[in-house]
Design a binder for these strands. Structure first.
Length: 854
RNA sequence: GCCGGAGUGGCGGAAUUGGCAGACGCGCCGGACUCAAAAUCCGGUGGGCUUCGGCCCUUGAGGGUUCGAGUCCCUCCUCCGGCACCA
């Protein structure tokens, strides 16, 4: 069927032919039309110019679609619709990130099962998303909790496991006593649980990790060429945290420690400042460092033990609180040799050294490191300066034996203009170069190696929870951890009446013998299933690969489809996912590429982060009570006006301030646009009726139109929706100036230009103007004529000493003497030129003329 | 502390990247329509002086570069986001 196509002859009770704009009627009609006609479901196999327009899929919360989601989706949708009008075959899917602790906690709170809550939430989301007028292909949605989906999430695990990129290891983890689960480092905010704010503790658990660190350098390098928001790239660079330095080996001093410590034992440290090794006057190990026992002397054993226990039992909050305060620590009684000077230095342990980074040991250089300095002061350890600014060393001084003005702190700046002092044969050298030479020199005795270190940790994917895809592994006494064969996937998550987490660290699934017991796939012997489930970030790490292939149940993604549609053409999402989701997605894509499953290694060709929406200057939150319910606004103003306002209230990529009063502007604009089209069509049918209706040759208007086409096109491409809308408003004001009746030729392109932003009314008006539905299939993006942008006369501001005094109208490209003459003759200008001498005249053609006088 | 981003009318925000600051919108004021109100339409709207010709000031603060700075440089302040004893 065709949509309702109104004509001038139709009875006035027809919804579209009424003389005033009724958003609800228009929106319902077109949403229905899109559905029935499959307007938004492209034929994925026949597309000539495939364009994958992706938006970050939401977590389907019980509260319904958050306005923040809608803000993001609208921004993405506009871009997709724009590309479609420009001739691309746009695929714009949506899905639901429904697994995870969020859903589970909510289910626990309301005392219902997530398996029954999620479908209801999804239905509600879908309703709201449809009402928002997104160009969603509803035939290809993804739900991460569907076994048909997570079968492939598990498949992904199996592939990585096969490739040796998944390993199980005992690791100290962040344990949230309230959520009863481990948390990833990134889910710990300042020592507290990201979700419940409880203080996080340390616990040792055996867990599965993906070796993302093996990809650290590539993940970093590719950032140089992918087209992403700069801020997002910066965030990833910081997160990966590459630092260049050296691994230095400090031999354990003879006769130290217990009987196990042979003469060959060394303690390794990582440092970014090998140039300062001559100043290392002590060493500090993390309390949990494995070499602590063998370095500890009998006399200090008790003190060391109690300090270690204290550190182990201490939660992260307590550790943070002490930052900046006194640096505690105890002497182990053991010594190591400073490899540069051969001198014995004492080995201490302190909780300011963390096991997680580098080697878990640092050389204490109190002269040039703030933390080491504080520690040395605290514990009476010697401070030795080995670097100082070149300017501080007098000409006649010997840098091998020079005492700089110590001041009362450590000298920690690291500038190019520094030299080594008190560093034997390296003294006097620039610090950077000296550092390299020291590493080479120590390297000859195998005491140093250049090394690059990353802050990035391996990705822990185990969760001791219920609501996630089970890790597809069977532990066998004989064969070890065996991945579930692909043909046995999915390992279905059983329905558990009681899915609460336990305090023991064991997953809820461990309570189900029927689930736990399984035969080893390799030897057939008795085995036990892994009972942890996988991190939600794994679900979202590959969902974009699934969208084009949702109908295939024998493979996660079809090769031809993937080749045609990926990598993603445009991905828009929030900054809160700058690091984790985007980094994990990149890692998984890279790994799949290396394993031969994908022919590209970066999943998102273009990524743009959107800004944060706030309300009346304040962050939107339930506790503030300033939550925006999209439904209410859509009902009152219509989805089009709401969409338009969301995009108008500020620059999309920076966010903006939502104010209720603001909606009136876009709503008025749409009413005015409607009236303009009605007036234009009426005038075109009765040419004699009005004098102004016939015009299509008004040159000023023609220029304005072509300028508008140019501007809107450029602004939409750059996601500068607010200024695109402003330009459209400005144009409509012109066209309607003092009640003028516009021509059809003046308004038809405008309708197309705003269609990405306000799709429903655009469809309606397009038909009203005689176009064939859908506008997105048939209108095409208008072209502008560069020649029509030109003007022959232009106003040029005239300044005297940089102050604006007048403007003169001249021909474009006019010569300086002509403009100067005209400008100088102007009374407002000449007044200021009297009695002064013109020293210089600055003339920028078509821009400005400035008389410099005194 | 470190890394990002931002400070412009009563408010949300523009400004071709060094060239008429305040586009567009909200709000407000005045007018039209109306018995009246709402809606709608038209006009005005940064601040201060004004002899009504104009003049001066103004983009967080202070300096600088330049004929000319919201835009570039230096110092500082404030707010937002992220990271945080990373060796």
């Amino acid at each position: 069927m065709t949509p309702h196509v109104p004509t001038a002859n139709e009875p006035s009770d027809s919804p579209a032919s009424g003389s005033s704009y009724d958003p609800e009627a228009v929106e319902v009609r077109w949403q229905q039309y899109w559905d029935e006609r499959g307007t938004n479901s492209p034929d994925l196999d026949a597309a000539r110019r495939p364009f994958f327009n992706l938006m970050m899929y939401p977590y389907p919360s019980a509260e319904g679609l958050h306005v923040g989601n809608l803000y993001a989706f609208t921004g993405a949708d506009i871009y997709g619709r724009f590309r479609r009008l420009k001739g691309d075959d746009v695929f714009e899917p949506i899905g639901y990130d429904a697994f995870g602790i969020h859903s589970e906690n909510h289910a626990l709170k309301v005392g219902r099962h997530p398996m029954e809550l999620i479908p209801a939430n999804i239905r509600n989301f879908e309703r709201m998303l449809r009402a928002a007028g997104l160009m969603t292909d509803w035939t290809r949605t993804v739900d991460t909790t569907d076994p048909g989906y997570y079968k492939w999430t598990q498949w992904l695990f199996v592939q990585l496991h096969k490739a040796g990129l998944a390993e199980k290891k005992e690791a100290p983890v962040n344990w949230c006593p309230s959520c009863q689960t481990v948390l990833a480092n990134e889910q710990v905010i300042a020592g507290r649980c990201e979700r419940c704010d409880a203080a996080v503790e340390q616990q040792e658990l055996s867990q599965w990790f993906f070796k993302i660190t093996e990809y650290a350098q590539r993940l970093l390098d590719n950032l140089d060429w992918i087209d992403w928001s700069e801020t997002t790239k910066t965030a990833q660079r910081n997160w990966i945290g590459r630092s260049e330095g050296a691994r230095l080996r400090f031999p354990v001093s003879a006769g130290q420690g217990g009987e196990g410590a042979g003469d060959l034992a060394t303690v390794e440290v990582f440092t970014t400042r090998p140039d300062t090794v001559f100043g290392a006057s002590f060493m500090v190990l993390a309390p949990e460092h494995p070499m602590v026992p063998e370095l500890t002397a009998p006399a200090t054993r008790d003190a060391v033990e109690s300090y270690r226990q204290g550190a182990a039992g201490m939660d992260l909050v307590e550790r943070k609180k002490r930052e900046g305060a006194a640096k505690t620590g105890v002497f182990t009684g053991g010594h190591v040799q400073n490899p540069a000077i051969g001198e014995d230095i004492p080995v201490w342990i302190s909780d300011y050294v963390i096991m997680d980074y580098g080697t878990g040991a640092v050389m204490g250089v109190p002269g040039h490191d703030q933390r080491d300095f504080e520690f040395a002061v605290q514990h009476g350890l010697p401070v030795r300066a080995v670097v100082c600014p070149r300017a501080q060393v007098p000409e006649d001084a010997d840098p091998r034996d020079f005492l700089p003005d110590a001041g009362d702190g450590a000298f920690i700046e690291h500038t190019p203009d520094e030299v080594l002092i008190n560093s034997s044969q390296f003294s006097g050298m620039p610090a950077d170069d000296g550092g390299r030479r020291i590493v080479a020199w120590l390297g000859e005795r195998d005491l140093a190696t250049p090394e690059v270190n990353f802050r990035l940790h391996d990705w822990c994917i185990s969760r001791q929870r219920y609501w996630g895809p089970p890790i597809p592994v069977i532990n066998c006494g004989a064969c070890g951890a065996v991945a579930v064969p692909e043909e046995d996937l999915p390992v279905e998550l059983p329905y558990l009446e009681d899915f609460r987490p336990t305090a023991s660290g064991a997953s809820p699934l461990a309570r189900v013998p029927g689930f736990r017991e399984a035969a080893c796939p390799r030897c057939g012997g008795p085995g036990e299933r892994e009972t942890d489930v996988m991190d939600t970030f794994l679900d979202s790490g590959w969902y974009f690969l699934r969208y084009p292939s949702t109908e295939f149940d024998d493979k996660p993604f079809d090769a031809a489809r993937t080749a045609a549609w990926l990598p993603v053409g445009s991905y828009i999402g929030g900054e809160e996912h700058s690091v984790l989701h985007l980094l994990y997605s990149r890692f998984l894509t890279m790994a799949l590429h290396d394993l031969g499953h994908l022919d590209f290694e970066e999943p998102f060709a273009r990524f743009r982060k959107h800004g944060l929406l706030i309300k009346e200057g304040a962050k939107i939150s339930k506790s503030r009570g300033n939550v925006i319910l999209p439904d209410e606004y859509v009902t009152e103003f219509g989805a089009d006006a709401f969409r338009m306002y969301l995009m108008f209230l500020g620059p999309f990529q920076q966010g903006g301030d939502f104010r209720d009063e603001g909606l009136a502007g876009p709503r008025r604009f749409l009413g005015k646009l409607w009236d303009s089209v009605v007036a234009a069509t009426a005038a075109s049918e009765t040419p004699a009726a009005t004098g102004s209706g016939k015009n299509s040759l008004d040159p000023g208007m023609d220029r304005a139109l072509h300028l508008l086409i140019k501007q809107v096109g450029e602004h939409l491409e750059e996601l500068r929706y607010n200024t695109a809308i402003a330009a459209a408003m400005d144009y409509l004001n012109r066209v309607r100036y003092k009640g003028r009746t516009p021509s059809v030729e003046e308004v038809r392109p405008l309708v197309v230009l705003v269609a990405p932003i306000v799709p429903h009314i655009a469809e309606e008006l397009w038909v009203m103007l005689g176009g064939e539905a859908s506008i997105f299939d048939n209108a095409g993006w208008p072209d502008y004529d560069e020649a029509k942008l030109a003007v022959n006369r232009i106003q040029v501001p005239v300044q005297v000493n940089g102050k604006l005094r007048a403007t003169v109208t001249v021909a474009t490209g006019a010569a300086q003497d002509q403009v100067q003459e005209l400008a100088a003759a102007n009374a407002a200008v000449s007044r200021h030129l009297e009695g002064v001498e013109i020293r210089k005249v600055i003339y920028v053609p078509d821009r400005l003329i400035n008389f410099v006088a005194n």
